[in-house]
Structure formats: structure tokens, C-alpha cells
Design a protein around this nucleic acid. Sequence first.
DNA 1: GATAGTACTTTGTATTGCAAGATACCCTGC
DNA 2: GCAGGGTATCTTGCAATACAAAGTACTATC
Lengths: 118, 118
Amino acid sequence: MNVENIQSQMRKGVLEYCILSIIKNGEAYPGDIIEEMKSAGLNLFEGTLYPLLNRLKNAEILSYRWVESTTGPPRKYFSLTEKGLAFYELLESTWKELSGSVEILISKTNKETPNTEL
Amino acid sequence: MNVENIQSQMRKGVLEYCILSIIKNGEAYPGDIIEEMKSAGLNLFEGTLYPLLNRLKNAEILSYRWVESTTGPPRKYFSLTEKGLAFYELLESTWKELSGSVEILISKTNKETPNTEL
DNA sequence: GATAGTACTTTGTATTGCAAGATACCCTGC
DNA sequence: GCAGGGTATCTTGCAATACAAAGTACTATC
């Protein structure tokens, strides 16, 4: 019940959505994705990302191609498939519904009984 | 990788936040909470809620008192402890940070290359 | 051909939402 | 006083998955 755990729990649900959004923007390899996530304030670990990308690839949501690098071994550049784009849009509406529901709930419970404040 | 699973994953992270928000508004028993969540569009199951409430009680975030009911067995009415209020505020800021990060990421990745739209 | 840096993969652990069923309490009718 | 239906709470087992940590592999440089 510590802070890291809470953040991790909340992050969980939106990880796929964020990652697909990055890839939708253009081909990316895992290093790009981790960087972009961090710059938005969302930490992401290799041990999380690689299995996730593989799950998405196996579900035919992502595809990849090998691209050689001058600074090391070749990289897997991922991009969305057609199915992946549809999946992304599903995630998008799911996120909007969820965040909408939360807003409704929070604003409602904050208004009804002001005397809750002691 | 089905729809229910995605929704469930996203819901996961905000469950505690929503439930604490409802309880913060005033004492509530599990039936109340499930009703309120459903009315906001968030399904919640008994098998999820009871263990969660017990975890929060053991962490001294919630306390409860028994209240008799005219329609059945007595109910556990939960309320926030002092520690619970602090925890709620932590969840609140965590949620705001997360949803902020997501918005940043999504809007950024949607703008940079408009030609992604096929 | 050894070393360092980058990239990808795998294994094990802990958490927790959910389904299903069990337990317990209250009331009514007999 | 006890059988049955409705309400409420609790428990058990399963499945999914984020994370940590260690391992493998490729490239370039010395």
C-alpha cells in the first residue's frame, strides 16, 4: 500500500494506450518509447515493455522490421497494423469513458455533502 | 486481448481512488458503493470490493461500524480515517498527474505527424 | 580477440481483479 | 421454533501482468 505501488497500478491500465499512441505517430523502437514515456512523466521499464510489445505483436496489433544501427546491434522498429489502428481507437474510447466516469464520480462526491469536511 | 480485459485493466488502477472518494463523501456500505460506481459507469464486483475494503481497513485507511438494517443482516458502514484522508489526497494527485501525462502524450503524438492518418 | 556499449530476451515474484461458492443474519409463514 | 427466501459478508482459486534481475547477442574500438 505504498506510493510506488499506487502509481504502478494506475499506470498499468494506460500503458498499452500510451505505447500504441507513440507507435501510431511513427515507427519506434523500444528505446524511443521509453524515452518518450519518461519525458511525459511515465516511467517504464524494459522488463515491462519488451514482453508487452511481444504480446501486441502476437496479437497482430503491431509488426516490426529490423533496422541497423551505427551505435550497436540492430533495432526492432514497431508500427501499427490495420488491426492495431482499430485496437488503438478502442483503447482511446475506453480511456475517454473511464476518465469521464472518474470525473463524474469525483465531482459528485465532492459536492453533495460539504459538511464532510471536519 | 479482448475488450472486457482492457476495460478491467484500466479500471483497476482507479478503483481505490473512486471507492475512497465515495466513502469520503460519507459513510457507505458495500451495496452503496457498488450502486454509486455503476451509476457512474464503472462496474464493480463483490469479489473485488470486499477484499479491497479489508485491505484498506488493515492498512488503517478505513474504519467501519456495524449498522443494523431493517431489510436484512447488519451492514458494515465504512468511513475514512485520518490516515485515509491523507491517502486519498495522495491518490487524487497521482490520478491528476497520470491523466495529465496521458493527455500530454496523446496530444503530442497526435499533432507531430498529421500524415499518419491514412 | 578482448572489452565496452547497446539492444533484446527470459525467468521468477508479487499483486490483485474476478468468478463462484460458502457462510451468516433477518424476517415471514407455518 | 424451524424452514425458506432475501440480503450481506467472506473465502478460495485462477489468470493476467508489472517489475526486478540476470542472461544473451550484436557492433565497434582498441
